[in-house]
Write a protein that binds this DNA or RNA. Structure first.
Length: 122
DNA sequence: GTTATGACGCCGT
DNA sequence: AACGGCGCCATAA
C-alpha cells in the first residue's frame, strides 16, 4: 500500500503531467499553477520523487524554471531524464540547459509548432 | 505544536 | 550571470 493516500493536489498534478505533450517540457511551478496550487512548485518536486519507478507518467518532461534538470541524490535518474528528453527531440545547450523559448509547453496553444532550431539568436 | 527538509522560484546583490 | 536569502506548500520527525 502507498505510505500515503493520494490527495486532490496529487491527482491534479498527475493529470497535468500526463498531458504534457511529447517533445515539450513544463516547469515545476507551471505544473503547480495548472494543478490549481500556485506556489507549490516545491511540492510538485517532492511529489514526483514519490512516484514509483513503474509510473507511466512522463515525469522526465518536468524541469526547473531555468530550463535545467534538477539534481537528486543519484545522478543516474538525471541521465535517464536527459536521455528520454533527447530521444523525443528536446535539445540541450552547452551548459546542459533547455531553451524554454523553444520547448516550454503552452497548455493553451491550440496547436504547438514543432520547435525550429533555426531560431538562433545572439 | 515546532522544526527540519525538499526533483522550486523570485528578487536583490 | 551566478549566488545567497527568503517565501512557499506539504511531509516527516
Amino acid at each position: 500500500m502507498p505510505r500515503r493516500e493520494a490527495t486532490a493536489l496529487d491527482r491534479a498534478m498527475a493529470r497535468i503531467v500526463a498531458s504534457i505533450p511529447r517533445g515539450r517540457v513544463a516547469t515545476y511551478g507551471q505544473v503547480a499553477v495548472l494543478a490549481g496550487s500556485a506556489g507549490a512548485a516545491r511540492r510538485a518536486g517532492s511529489w514526483l520523487r514519490e512516484l514509483p519507478p513503474a509510473s507511466k507518467l512522463p515525469w522526465h518532461r518536468v524541469v526547473n524554471a531555468g530550463g535545467g534538470l534538477s539534481p537528486r541524490g543519484d545522478g543516474s535518474a538525471l541521465r535517464e531524464q536527459r536521455l528520454r528528453l533527447e530521444r523525443e527531440g528536446v535539445s540541450f545547450d552547452a551548459r546542459g540547459r533547455i531553451r524554454l523559448a523553444d520547448f516550454l509547453w503552452d497548455p493553451f496553444a491550440r496547436r504547438s509548432r514543432s520547435p525550429m532550431r533555426s531560431s538562433r539568436r545572439k
